[in-house]
Design a protein around this nucleic acid. Structure first.
Lengths: 202, 202
DNA sequence: ACCTGAACACCGTTCAAGT
DNA sequence: ACCTGAACACCGTTCAAGT
């Protein structure tokens, strides 16, 4: 306990590896890191990781799922259910989604990477759905109140909106929609176009 | 000429490597292949590739740009400028875009991969824009004729639509929107939701 | 001018051996 | 039960040497 020599057993290496990978992502140099690099950062031999994950993809999937949970919190913070006005609420949810991506580019990319999906697409899918639950609620409410077009079922419309948010986020991160400088403008413009499309004609 | 022994010099190795990589993509086992595998397929030593490309990313970028040209042709075939009715034309363009992705999943993924972008984002960007030129034309026409909402400039609306198409395509390829079975349904539903959002209220 | 083969520093994964 | 170190088969990249 009081000893300063590193113990042979780590304690919670599994968690430590996930945290190390998250830190690597936050440091900003891409999103594809070696398993060995996460182990290095955790101060442990690389082969130790295989006692906690069957393969690298398992670690990445865990990080990805954590990412979706962060996304859910991020959205709930910036667009609480108490937000007055469906208009504002939907806009806040959509804005929060895209901003999460631009604020955590590497994590967002990892969340949708092949390695992360390969491992447990169903878990990822349900994490994604949980993150978007607020959106689906708002849509159902909006349709009931007559504010939204009601041509489609709420879940179908939620999927369509998710597509748009994801596409916008990815294209922005890829630098294909705009330069870094006018990125904020591009986001708000695209979100406006999108929200206008949702509303019933005035 | 009449000899059947493989010549020491290949002739057009650069092109051959690109074609080999395209074939690997079409074979369906993912989209991340070793440079060495393309060289193997081209029947050449792996180090030979470095006389034609500065690094692997250079090869991938070339493949990606070819992909965008294929996409442009694909759209022009299925949604020629002669298509009667803006309604049909826009729907055809959007449908063609998404179907190109589902028909060439690995190529589509490569086109937006970090490796391909890293090399020449500007060339890629202009290829992407060329592929979407038909869309932008149709939007401008649609706004003039009063069929489309005119709240935004054509290029801004084109970007918003591209976001949606890209997001839909990627999420479908990722298997996050639907299972393989009801994939067609999901696509046409999402496209409908999208097109309804574009139109002026009836 | 173009291609080969050996070499280097990396990787993911495995496995016997240590604590 | 958990961790290490050496080993294996791979990879991208380089470079002297061949044609």
């Amino acid at each position: 306990m009081g000893s300063c020599t590193k113990p042979y057993h780590h304690g919670d290496l599994r968690r430590s590896l996930v945290v190390s990978y998250l830190e690597l992502l936050r440091e900003g140099k891409g999103w594809q890191f070696a398993l060995r690099e996460a182990a290095r950062k955790a101060g442990v031999s690389h082969s130790a990781a295989y006692k906690h994950f069957p393969h690298k993809a398992g670690l990445l999937a865990e990080v990805a799922i954590l990412g979706f949970e962060h996304l859910r919190c991020f959205i709930e913070e910036r667009a609480p259910a108490s937000t007055v006005g469906l208009d504002e609420r939907v806009a806040a949810i959509c804005g929060a989604y895209v901003r999460f991506g631009t604020a955590n580019p590497n994590l967002y990319r990892l969340m949708f990477s092949a390695d992360a999906r390969e491992c447990s697409n169903t878990r990822l899918r349900s994490s994604g759905m949980a993150a978007l639950a607020a959106l689906q609620c708002a849509i159902a409410e909006g349709q009931n109140s007559g504010w939204l077009r009601t041509c489609r079922k709420p879940d179908e419309q939620a999927q369509a909106i998710w597509s748009q948010l994801h596409g916008l986020t990815i294209l922005i991160l890829d630098g294909l929609l705009c330069s870094e400088a006018d990125c904020e403008d591009a986001i708000s413009t695209a979100l406006h176009v999108m929200l206008e499309g949702l509303k019933r004609a005035a």
